[in-house]
């Protein structure tokens, strides 16, 4: 059996699973990098002044949302194909569409979380020198998140348009 025959034989489910794996996996991967980088910067700030733990923790939470958005799209796909009880048989086209629908959040989530992590890490430097300006650091990070939010919406709308 070559790859094409394998794809044909397994129907659309394989694509649906691959899609949800990309949504959850890549967005989560990005968040891991983003949150990790911010954590490194935050720990540096807290070494100097342990009182800034709360503020830096807020910043660290920001790049974590992409992973959640990815999981959200993954979950909606699983709900659609019945992972939680009785898989639905879907054809190749439906499966491929589900795969495509998961790409926006998977890809944009991955990249935006990394860069949001950088912005948030720089925000930790703001907190170090001028803790009263935390909000500005948070907004800089949130500017990056905009595109993850839009990608989430795109994925959701695409998903919403696929009928099984």
């Amino acid at each position: 059996m070559n790859l094409f025959e394998f794809m044909n034989a397994s129907g659309g489910l394989i694509w649906a699973f691959l899609g949800s794996a990309i949504a959850v996996g890549f967005a989560g991967w990005g968040s891991v990098i983003g949150v990790g980088n911010t954590g490194v910067a935050a720990a540096g700030v807290v070494t100097e002044d342990p009182g800034k733990f709360g503020k830096t923790l807020l910043l660290q939470a920001l790049p974590g949302t992409q992973g959640i958005y990815g999981l959200l799209i993954g979950f909606l796909i699983w709900q659609k194909i019945g992972v939680f009880g009785g898989l639905v048989e879907i054809n190749l086209q439906q499966g491929f569409l589900l795969f495509l629908a998961s790409l926006p959040i998977g890809l944009v989530g991955f990249v935006s979380a990394i860069y949001q992590g950088r912005a948030a890490a720089a925000g930790c430097a703001i907190v170090a020198k001028r803790p009263e300006e935390l909000a500005k650091g948070m907004v800089f990070a949130a500017m990056v998140e905009t595109y993850a939010v839009l990608a989430l919406l795109a994925s959701f709308l695409m998903l919403n348009g696929i009928t099984l």
């Binding site: 999981l71 979950f75 939010v149 839009l150």
Partner: peptide, 13 residues
Amino acid sequence: LRLFALGLATGVI
């Protein structure tokens, strides 16, 4: 549109 997307996130999570 972020209003929608973030509301969506809360509900689905």
